[in-house]
Amino acid sequence: MTAHETSQTRIAPAWTQQLRALLRSQESVLLFITVIAVLILSTQTDKFLTVRNLLNQGRLMTEIGLIALPMTYIIVTGGIDLSVGSIAGLSAIMLGYGWYNLGLPLELAIVLALVIGAIAGFANGLFIILFRVPPLIMTLATLAFYRGLAEGIAQARSVRDYPEWFYALGQRETLGIPNQLYFLVIAAIITAIILSRTTFGRSLYAIGNNELAARFSGIPVRRNKLIIYTLSGFMSGFAGYVLVSRVSTTRSDMGSGWELDAIAAVVLGGTSIFGGSGSIVGTMIGLVLIQLLKNGLALTGVTGDATIVVIGSVLILSTLINSVIQRRVEGL
């Protein structure tokens, strides 16, 4: 990038350069792909590009989105968190267990679920920083362990019949917009600002680029890692709560497979799996692209088995297109 910019300095004024850089960024390429996909899909059916449908898709993608945000942080540092789906399941079970079996007020049970999520994430982070367990291994083990706790605590029972107000978050709307979508948007904005505009955010890139160098330059690497894994646990817990509110019951298998959906959104969004680069904007576009593809294909009559073939191909192809473009840009 730098080489490219200096070579252009004399010819073009500053704002054109910035515009060019912006247009060639991973996010714009992906946005372009998304727009193309949306345009193609909207010519196939008039049910797709309606405010109502799009808002409804927002409702359906909120849980994965909430998890994908901290997942972006973690992947930017070169880590990964495979236990998110299990944490969501554990929190969901704890919510029901706290309210129904322990007799807590529902408000307190919700807090309990979120705290359990945060503790689960904190434990991941603690092992990772104290014993230097590689994140993939640590969270692979807790993927099984947290799910096992959820199963053990639930004893195959589900908790249902919550009071009416509990469903407000997952099933109602405010000003025509699904309630949980507000949380996703706010969380996305906050996490985006933190990642791109604060020292903390920049430290995550530093850790991902070269952890040792980051440590020597005085960045509290361990503390920051602990924070992001705890955040990931908390957000997974929150996603679990949102799901319970949306589907009105708890099950111990809730959230299984979410880890791959969240990772797919993050890597599709241009975050390098090796750490050091990526953005929340990219993740959000990746999330939206996957959701709209699933929805749009379904609305045009493509069945579920064919849809996952398309999604898999898009994941590989768009990463390929992006990497070719980025290499061109760097090569110039």
Partner: peptide
């Protein structure tokens, strides 16, 4: 009649499928 469903017995995905068909009409 057309059959369409997730490839795994997952309630979360099943809801999404039904929702899409409500939209599709």
């Amino acid at each position: 009649v057309t059959t369409d469903a997730p490839t795994e017995g997952n309630i979360d995905e099943q809801i999404t499928f039904i929702d899409n068909y409500i939209t599709r009409g």
